[in-house]
Amino acid sequence: MKTQEELTEIVRDHFSDMGEAATLYVQVYESSLESLVGGVIFEDGRHYTFVYENEDLVYE
C-alpha cells in the first residue's frame, strides 16, 4: 500500500503533462489510505478536481 505522499506524487506526475501546476491540494477529510481526493490549479487558471483510487485517476 502506498503512502499519501506517494499517491500525491503519482497524481502530480500525471498532471505535469497538462502544464505548470500552481497548486495541488488534497482534501484530507475525504481521502484515505486507499484513495486521494483533491484538486489541481494550473498557472493558466484551469482547475480540476480528482479522485485517485486503485491506480485509477478520475478528474473533471
Rank of each mutant, 00 (worst) to 15 (best):
L36Q: 01
T8N: 04
H47M: 06
E53T: 12
I41S: 03
E9G: 07
E5Y: 08
M1H: 13
L24Q: 02
E34Y: 07
A21Y: 13
E30G: 06
V40G: 01
V58H: 12
E20R: 06
V40D: 01
E53L: 13
V40T: 02
A22P: 12
F42A: 00
L57Q: 02
Y29Q: 04
Y59V: 12
S35K: 15
D56A: 15
M1K: 13
M1S: 10
F42N: 00
L33D: 08
N54G: 08
D13T: 13
F50W: 06
V37Y: 08
A21H: 11
G19M: 07
G38F: 09
I41H: 05
E60N: 08
R46C: 09
S16N: 10
R46F: 06
V11H: 01
Q4A: 08
T49N: 05
E53K: 13
E30L: 12
A21R: 08
E43Q: 11
Y48A: 00
E20H: 12
H14R: 11
K2R: 08
T49P: 01
L33I: 11
E43S: 12
M1C: 15
V11C: 08
R46D: 02
G45H: 01
L57T: 01
M18W: 11
G38Y: 03
I41N: 00
D13K: 15
Q27W: 13
Y59N: 01
Y48H: 01
E55N: 14
N54P: 02
G45Y: 05
E53G: 05
E6H: 06
E34P: 12
E34K: 07
I41T: 06
Y48V: 05
E60P: 04
L36N: 02
D56P: 03
L36M: 08
V26Q: 01
E5D: 09
E5V: 08
I41L: 07
H14L: 15
D56T: 15
S35T: 14
I41A: 02
V51D: 00
R46K: 05
Y59H: 04
V11M: 04
R12N: 04
D44Y: 05
G38L: 11
S16T: 08
L7N: 03
H14E: 02
T8C: 15
E6D: 07
E6Y: 08
E30Y: 12
G19R: 04
D56I: 15
A22V: 14
I10Y: 06
H14F: 15
S35M: 15
L7F: 02
N54C: 14
V58L: 10
G19W: 06
D44R: 00
D56F: 14
S32D: 10
A21W: 13
E6L: 07
V37A: 08
L57D: 02
Y59C: 10
A21C: 15
G45C: 08
E30K: 08
T23L: 13
L33W: 08
T8R: 07
L36C: 08
R46M: 04
T49A: 06
K2I: 09
R12H: 05
L36H: 01
E20A: 12
V26K: 00
Q27I: 15
T49W: 11
G19Q: 02
V58D: 04
F42I: 01
E43I: 10
E55I: 06
T49G: 02
Q4W: 11
F15Y: 03
E6P: 01
E5K: 08
E43W: 08
S32H: 11
E43K: 12
A22S: 10
V51F: 08
L24V: 13
G38I: 13
S16D: 06
E43A: 13
H14P: 02
M18S: 04
A22N: 09
G38T: 04
I10M: 08
Y52K: 00
G45I: 04
A21Q: 10
